[in-house]
Design a protein around this nucleic acid. Structure first.
Length: 590
RNA sequence: GCCCUCGUAGCUCAGGGGAUAGAGCAUUGGCCUCCGAAGCCAUGUGCGCAGGUUCGAAUCCUGCCGGGGGCACCA
């Protein structure tokens, strides 16, 4: 029996032989050569095109630069342009270069992809990226507010890893601050065993609410809580032990949620606020030594340039509060220092909601002013918008409470399970349950990752879990259909003999889509916008289904059958790999 | 008041200064003795408003209108 799984062995051995150059890069390289010959560094402005395969729009700007006629300039570019065997070129309109790839070149590129495990995506080495994401609070439920940071951050982490970065994930959990006084006292009131039992089953909210209720209504409890905060901050051993219980139980619970979401974060990635406590004094004294620190209203502040408050006065970044406690700015500054000097980060990403934009701008500005953040280190706030309900306000339950992440996933899983049950497939109960979870995760994650992260989006479970349209399940379905072709394969096929003649328009269209994968990955990475990759995958899936309607595969005669099987294999691998970079599974059957 | 962000089809959204602005859903009509119809094909409507820069603007700039967010000790 010949199954498609054989590709892995073939590919691994070939990959060692050398790097692959993506189709876009080949074209760009040739075009640059021609443009450079006229004006060094001129951008060919290479883009995919609906008029041809690609178009280069840089001629007009180049002509402008030299005060020449664009058509003449186009002719001049052409005289330097060597695309022999790669593409046919046509000058159109005011000076567009329309590029139509030759079938020989497409064939060559596709055959290379067949042997390339990475499907044309190159690798970097020696770069370290610190990605700060998820950041739930100890002794608090993970709710829908953590969804985007977790899902987007994890997608970025996966993409960075694949691109060859060493990724250091940082889960900056809220594990410090005044609430811990009341939480610890509440833990003592409940008794350790019962508290642990409650926390370990993820009953974090009622634990927190219980503490809060007593704090608000019971003065004696309030007093104990305050005293406990002091004990915690002064390092009292017993208090620290109790605090550690809260942290450990919460982190264990978070791990369950991450497992349910299929997110790669582990307890080892948890480096909470408290981790930086010992560094805060130095942050303050070093800022002072640098002459940046100013006392204002009893607080120690830095006033970075360009920030004003509502009265037009300079806006401070408060490093140490007037009560001598440290604000989160101090923690964030300490974290920047740690990530630069101890982790040796080349890039630092903060996947945190858009409302924190000004805070991060100020933190980065201060860190740069203090010399803690060299210009060579890319440091960016990867901001995202809110998850809204149908009423276009922040998503809440009917009763106005926050929506638990686990509850959300369970509901999605239930829907997927019901839908699967209706389809009378011959899955066992367990298999169906497992599949339902995979589909649910895909639905929720894809909905989040398929829209521009900067914008708010409306959470609509019906739409995202629908198996039709631009959804995660649709992509999974396309992949499952592809795999099923190979399950039905009765006569063996040999990919090495595949010749891509691409007679049918749908074949050619699909082929061009396959060759564009590296551009999609690079685009998503360069802009930190995972939705560029999801958009690409959806487009590819559509190209495939169109192809699949128009072009019989298994019943085709040779050599077309092998050619189409090869297209199917590449499509399946691209969908699977692309989805995996988003943190979405691609089951073989559904 | 200042700053950030968004405003694209009935709805939800793409759109890296380029040619005729694209998808999905919804609507309507086709397509399963044929590899998975969770699919495919067809079907009409739109860049908030007004200026400006440019050979060329949904995209860049300015102003206005409208939504969301932020603006000193919670993180």
């Amino acid at each position: 029996m010949v199954l498609d799984s054989g590709w892995r062995e073939r590919v691994r051995s070939r990959w060692e032989n050398g790097a692959v150059t993506s189709t876009y890069d080949v074209l760009l390289g040739r075009l640059r050569g021609a443009f450079d010959a006229i004006a060094d560094g001129a951008d060919p402005v290479l883009r995919p095109s609906d008029r041809s395969d690609y178009q280069a729009n840089g001629v007009m700007a180049l002509a402008k630069l030299r005060g020449m006629n664009p058509r003449d300039t186009a002719a001049e570019v052409l005289s330097h342009l060597d695309l022999e065997g790669v593409a046919d070129v046509e000058v159109a309109g005011p000076g567009f270069l329309n590029l139509t790839l030759t079938t020989e070149f497409l064939n060559e590129q596709l055959r290379t992809l067949l042997d390339d495990e990475r499907l044309g995506v190159g690798t970097l080495s020696g770069r370290i990226a610190v990605i700060d994401y998820s950041a739930p609070n100890v002794a608090k439920e993970m709710h829908v507010g953590h969804l985007r940071s977790t899902v987007i951050g994890d997608a970025l982490a996966r993409m960075y890893r694949f691109r060859g970065y060493q990724v250091i994930s940082r889960n900056h959990v809220g594990d410090w601050g005044t609430p811990f006084g009341m939480l610890i006292e509440h833990l003592l009131d409940l008794g350790e065993d019962e508290a642990i039992a409650s926390l370990s089953i993820g009953d974090l909210d009622s634990f927190y609410r219980g503490a809060r209720a007593k704090f608000d209504s019971d003065d004696a409890f309030k007093e104990r809580s305050r005293a406990r905060v002091v004990a915690l901050q002064s390092g009292d051993a017993e208090t620290r032990r109790l605090w550690q219980i809260l942290v450990d139980e919460s982190v264990a619970y978070f791990a369950d949620v991450y497992a349910a979401l299929d997110v790669t974060l582990t307890p080892a990635d948890v480096v909470g606020e408290s981790y930086y406590n010992d560094m805060l004094e130095d942050v303050v004294s070093d800022l002072d030594a640098a002459g940046l620190l100013v006392e204002s209203g009893g607080a120690l502040c830095v006033f970075p340039e360009g920030f004003t408050n509502r009265d037009g006065e300079p806006l401070p970044l408060i490093v140490q509060k007037s009560d001598e406690g440290f604000g989160y700015a101090a923690t964030d500054l300490a974290a920047v220092r740690d990530r630069v000097s101890n982790l040796h980060a080349d890039e630092i990403l903060y996947v945190v909601g858009a409302p924190q934009g000004q805070h991060f701008e100020m933190v980065f500005a201060v860190a740069r002013a203090a010399g803690w953040l060299p210009a060579s280190v890319r440091c960016e706030h990867v901001a995202f918008g809110n998850v809204l309900g149908a009423d276009r306000k922040m998503l809440k339950t009917r009763s106005g409470e926050t929506v638990k992440l686990i509850g959300l996933l369970d509901e999605a899983t239930q829907r997927a399970n019901d839908a699967l049950a209706l389809r009378s497939n011959n899955l066992s109960e367990d298999e169906r349950r497992h599949l339902a979870r995979q589909i649910a995760r895909a639905a929720v994650k894809y909905a989040d990752l398929s829209t521009d992260r900067q914008r708010d989006y409306v959470f609509d479970l019906d739409r995202m879990i629908a198996f039709e349209g631009d959804t995660g399940p649709y992509l999974q379905y396309a992949h499952a259909r592809l795999r099923s072709i190979f399950r039905r394969l009765d006569v063996p096929w040999d990919p090495n003999t595949a010749i891509f003649a691409l007679h049918d328009d749908a074949e050619r269209h699909l082929a061009l889509g396959l060759l564009a994968f590296p551009e999609a990955v690079d685009g998503a990475l360069a802009t930190l916008q995972p939705h560029r990759l999801s958009g690409y995958l959806f487009d590819l899936a559509q190209r495939f289904t169109t192809f699949y309607e128009a072009c019989p595969v298994l019943s085709a005669s040779e050599p077309t059958r092998t050619e189409r099987l090869a297209l199917c294999e590449l499509t399946a691998r691209t969908l699977s790999l692309g989805l995996s970079l988003l943190g979405i599974e691609a089951p073989d059957q559904m």
